[in-house]
Amino acid sequence: MIVRIMGEGQLRLADSRLVELDKLDDELLREMENGDGPGFRRTLAELLAKVRELGTPLPDEALEPSELILPAAEATLEEVRALLGGDGLIPG
């Protein structure tokens, strides 16, 4: 799976790693629903750090379609709400 972090670039991530990201995604969704700004900020940073840890960066010149697009670390709660599907940022 190709994952894009907005403003950073793309990473290749094994589909099997999505399970590890689901918990953080669920937590992020709860914090957004509760309007927990500080919790949202912390969990978004953790989610992006985990994607960077588990993924392999693609070269900047690579132009592959992204199957998953994640917000930039500095994205606001409102910006992330606009990106969310009903299940959060991570499908499944």
Score class of each variant (00 low, 15 high):
L29M: 12
A45I: 10
D25R: 02
R52T: 02
L70G: 00
A75K: 12
G39Q: 03
A49E: 08
D36S: 02
L47W: 05
L13M: 07
R41P: 13
P38S: 05
N34I: 00
R81W: 10
A62K: 08
M6T: 14
P59L: 15
L11Y: 14
G88C: 01
L83E: 14
V80H: 00
L29H: 08
G39E: 11
G86Q: 11
D15I: 01
M32D: 06
K23Q: 09
G9Q: 01
T56Q: 13
E46V: 03
L68E: 05
I5G: 03
E53I: 04
E46M: 08
F40W: 07
G35C: 04
L54R: 12
L89H: 02
A72V: 06
K23L: 12
L47V: 11
A45K: 07
L58P: 06
G9K: 04
P59E: 15
I5K: 04
L47M: 08
A49S: 05
L83A: 08
I90V: 15
V3N: 02
D87F: 03
E74I: 06
R4V: 09
D36Y: 13
L83H: 09
G88L: 07
R12E: 11
V19I: 09
E61S: 10
R81E: 15
G92M: 07
L70M: 00
L83N: 06
K23P: 04
E31Y: 14
